[in-house]
Amino acid sequence: MTQLTQQILSGVATGAIYASLALALVMIHQATESVNFAQGEMAMFSTYIAWSLVQVGTPFWIAFVLTVVISFIGGVLIERIIVRPVENAPVLSHVIVFIGLLVIFSAVAGWIFTYTVKQFPSPFPTKPLLGGAVTGHDLGVIGVTFVMLILLFLFFRFTPLGLAMRAAAQNPESARLVGIRVGWMLAIGWGLAAAVGAVAGIMVAPILFLDPHMMSGVLLYAFAAALLGGISSPGGAVLGGLIVGVLENLVGTYLIASELKLTMALALIIIVLVVKPSGLFGAHAVKRV
């Protein structure tokens, strides 16, 4: 197999990692119209919960479901207790709160679970496939990401709750007038984003290995992915993730030195914001004044 194919396949595998976290970013943005910088660290913390459950002998899939449920509740609580009081504060206050959460989750995880790198079990066969370019687990991650994507799509498009959440995020006043409990919609949005993040964390931990910094690097690429695909489009975010993953490998191998891989992701964020802020598939944000 040529290096080109290997780099592309390996990029798709890494891209799936970005895509899964980008989905959580899209989720929180759909539900609250803001971008949560602590999303990666929350996902990391959820992964530690799953790890602890597995350590005490819980079967993998039960630990998986439990973690998703616990993360949902945790997300709701964070919204109710921490985000709610600053609801009407300027955007900058929100950013500060999110960064505060990021630091807190990272430090608390280190304090409770130590910084020693931990191995995380994979529910899929980890056998290398296609000449080692991807493993069975990588394919599993891609599969799970697509399942999440479909679920999110169906949720927002076809369920009354999904519709109510979109309404609450985009136009709180009108939503309130038609009887939607906007406050709770935001809380549920946080819960769902935390749950999606938990799935992402559990899926990527076997690849990246679990430590308190597991998601800090991924988050930037996930941002690039979400922005590229369009922060309001789950499908766009997944495709954006895959594009970023492949592009990063190809550019890092053939065009520029690999030390500029991260720079490429940041440049991508800036280019998208300048040229096409709604991303490849995002809807134009139209605000009535």
Binding site: T14, Y18, L208
Partner: peptide, 30 residues
Amino acid sequence: YETSDPTVDSQVVALMNSGANVFINITTPK
């Protein structure tokens, strides 16, 4: 690689394709 890189897979693929028979791994634990 940078410490902010999520993985070093791409770098390893490129190194293997150089046809090397010795690999020197100067990396931190993860």
